[in-house]
């Protein structure tokens, strides 16, 4: 190892040690010993319902924590209790609606946009920009059905593969590695 490299590595090591040891200077602001509020736990329950709807145990556990939270500010605990009952009855959709109501949010579930006859007679719903923004948007899965533009892109991509393969074959090296190796061996024997 050259002296220059040794000096570089020593300096680097010293910098790492100084950097790591100065960690205390930047007090950790992320962790908190304060127990989560009921509103936070309700929000997490909704997120669990959205992300892991099949994990009933986690959802129930988080909802129980919300019910037992000391800080109930910002959450309607009656609605939270009703949501727990709905969850026990296996109605996760209803439970989620109640939880969203409990922390002052409207329903965020993706609903059928076509109105029922009753809804047509009712007052018009507010325009999207007037309605409350959703708390937890559902996962967005782009449509897998192919339209005309998709077929054009597929055809162009397939053409690129074909033309590229043709050009790669045309521009291939004159000798393969195996033939070069064999040639070198033959030359040595001669």
């Amino acid at each position: 190892m050259t002296g220059l490299l040794r000096a570089f590595l020593s300096t680097l090591a010293a910098l790492v040690v100084i950097g790591l040891s100065s960690g205390e200077a930047f007090a950790h602001g992320g962790e908190s010993d304060t127990p989560a509020s009921a509103a936070d736990l309700v929000e997490q329950t909704i997120a669990l319902m959205v992300n892991t709807p099949d994990d009933h145990e986690s959802v129930t556990h988080r909802l129980e924590e919300a019910l037992e939270a000391e800080d109930t500010g910002g959450a309607d605990m009656d609605l939270v209790a009703q949501a727990a009952e709905a969850l026990d009855e296996g109605d996760m959709g209803r439970a989620r609606e109640l939880l969203e109501g409990a922390i002052g949010m409207g329903s965020m579930m993706q609903e059928d946009p076509s109105p029922t006859p009753d809804e047509e007679d009712a007052e018009p719903t507010p325009a999207p920009e007037e309605s409350e923004p959703p708390l937890v948007l559902e996962e967005f899965r782009p449509s897998r059905s192919l339209d005309g533009g998709d077929w054009v892109l597929l055809a162009a991509s397939a053409a690129a593969v074909a033309v590229g393969a043709l050009l790669a074959w045309r521009f291939r090296p004159a000798d393969t590695i195996r033939s070069l190796r064999r040639g070198a061996r033959t030359g040595r024997e001669e």
Partner: peptide
């Protein structure tokens, strides 16, 4: 690269990536 681009184009049309739910802290 042209072969690769075509292959990536096929993947892009057939298997577009999903966008997950909006984030919530604590889970």
């Amino acid at each position: 690269g042209l072969v690769l681009l075509g292959f990536l184009g096929l993947l892009s049309v057939l298997i577009p990536p999903i966008i997950g739910a909006t984030p919530v802290e604590g889970i």
